[in-house]
Simulated assay, not measured.
Amino acid sequence: MKNRPEIPAGVYAPRPSRQESKADSTTNVARSIIEAEAKARDAKTAKLRALRLAQEAVSEPVAPAKRPARKAAAK
């Protein structure tokens, strides 16, 4: 046999099978959808929080309602 030079790692990367590439694309799409939903949820939460804080600053503080006393159970 001939003495061949060593091939650097990563030069000839193995190609993924058809199923693996399809699974990878599905995973990437699902992750992008989940990230978009999370960004939208965070934006909505920030918007609602800002509105609530603005409303609390304008309105008067409300004292918590007292609970009526419980009656003793009859035997």
Rank of each mutant, 00 (worst) to 15 (best):
S17P: 03
A65G: 09
K75Q: 08
S59D: 09
A38M: 08
A9P: 02
A46R: 14
P8W: 12
D42P: 08
R4Q: 02
L51A: 12
P14C: 02
K2G: 03
K44I: 02
I33G: 07
R4S: 03
A9I: 05
A46N: 12
D24R: 04
S32C: 01
R52I: 08
A38K: 13
T45S: 11
S59M: 06
P5N: 00
N28Y: 06
A50I: 03
V58T: 12
V11P: 00
S25M: 03
E35Y: 05
A69W: 08
A74T: 01
K47I: 05
P14M: 02
K39N: 15
K44A: 02
E37W: 11
S21I: 04
E60M: 14
K2S: 03
E37G: 04
Q19S: 06
R41H: 09
A74V: 01
K47M: 09
Q19G: 09
A30S: 11
A38V: 01
A46T: 11
N3C: 05
A46F: 02
E56S: 05
S32A: 10
A65C: 06
L48K: 05
A40T: 14
E37V: 07
P68C: 00
K2R: 03
A69D: 15
Q55H: 02
R18S: 07
Y12F: 10
K66E: 13
A72N: 03
E37Q: 10
P5W: 02
R15V: 06
R18I: 05
N3E: 05
I34R: 15
K39L: 11
A9M: 07
T27R: 03
E35G: 02
S17L: 04
K47W: 08
P68R: 01
S17Y: 03
A73V: 13
D42N: 15
A54V: 03
E6C: 12
L51T: 10
K75P: 11
L48S: 04
T45D: 10
N3Q: 10
G10D: 09
A46D: 13
S25A: 10
R4Y: 09
A43Y: 12
A69S: 14
P14Q: 08
P61F: 00
R41E: 08
S59N: 11
R41F: 09
R70F: 12
K39A: 13
I34W: 12
A30T: 06
R18L: 06
A57E: 15
R49H: 02
T45G: 06
A65H: 13
Q55C: 00
D42C: 06
A69Y: 10
D42T: 11
E20R: 12
A46H: 09
A74Y: 00
M1L: 10
K22G: 02
A50T: 07
A13R: 05
A50N: 05
V58Y: 06
S32Y: 04
P61E: 14
A46Q: 12
V29E: 14
A72R: 02
E20N: 09
T45Y: 10
P61H: 01
R4C: 06
A69P: 14
A40K: 14
R31F: 00
